[in-house]
C-alpha cells in the first residue's frame, strides 16, 4: 500500500527530491560522530579544569598557577612545557606527550596536563599506561 501511494501520490520529481533529502538526512547522522574524534589536551589544577584544547591545532598558551605562569606549546599533535616558574623545571624535562592517558605535571605550580584520546582509542589502544 505504501508502495502504491509512493507511485501514485508523488510526482517523479517528488520521488527524486525525497530520496535526495533522505540521503542528506542520513548523512547528517555521521556529522557529530566525526566531530567527537580527535585527541585533546585537558589542563587541570586540583579538581578544576582550566583549559581544554584540541591537539591537532598548533598553538602556544600560558596558564597561571600559584607560582606564576606556565607556558605550554602544542605542535604536531604533542604537548610540552616551554617555560615554568617552578624551581626544578621537572615539567620541562618531562618532554613531549602525545598519547592517550599521558600526563605532564608541574607539581609546584599545581598544574596537571592530561591527554584524552580519541574515542576509537578505546577499542584499538589502551585505557591506562603503566610506566
Amino acid at each position: 500500500m505504501i508502495f502504491s501511494i509512493w507511485r501514485q501520490r508523488l510526482t517523479r520529481f517528488d520521488r527524486k527530491l525525497v530520496a535526495a533529502l533522505a540521503l542528506l538526512v542520513l548523512s547528517s547522522f555521521l556529522l557529530p560522530l566525526q566531530q567527537a574524534a580527535g585527541s585533546r589536551l585537558v589542563v587541570s589544577s586540583g579538581d578544576n579544569i582550566l583549559f581544554v584544547a584540541p591537539l591537532n591545532q598548533d598553538q602556544q598558551f600560558e596558564l597561571s598557577g600559584p607560582l606564576g605562569s606556565t607556558k605550554l606549546q602544542i605542535s604536531n599533535g604533542a604537548v610540552r612545557v616551554l617555560s615554568s616558574p617552578c624551581p626544578q623545571k621537572i615539567c620541562i624535562g618531562m618532554g613531549k606527550v602525545s598519547r592517550n592517558g599521558e600526563l605532564l605535571a608541574c607539581v609546584p605550580n599545581r598544574l596537571v596536563i592530561r591527554i584524552e584520546g580519541k574515542s576509537t582509542d578505546r577499542e584499538s589502544g589502551y585505557d591506562l599506561l603503566s610506566r
Binding site: L10, T11, R12, L21
Partner: peptide, 17 residues
Amino acid sequence: LWQPKIGPVGVSVLGAL
C-alpha cells in the same frame, strides 16, 4: 523553481526540513 514538476509532498518535505 520546480513547479509544475514538484508536488505537494516534495514541497511539504522541504518545508518540514
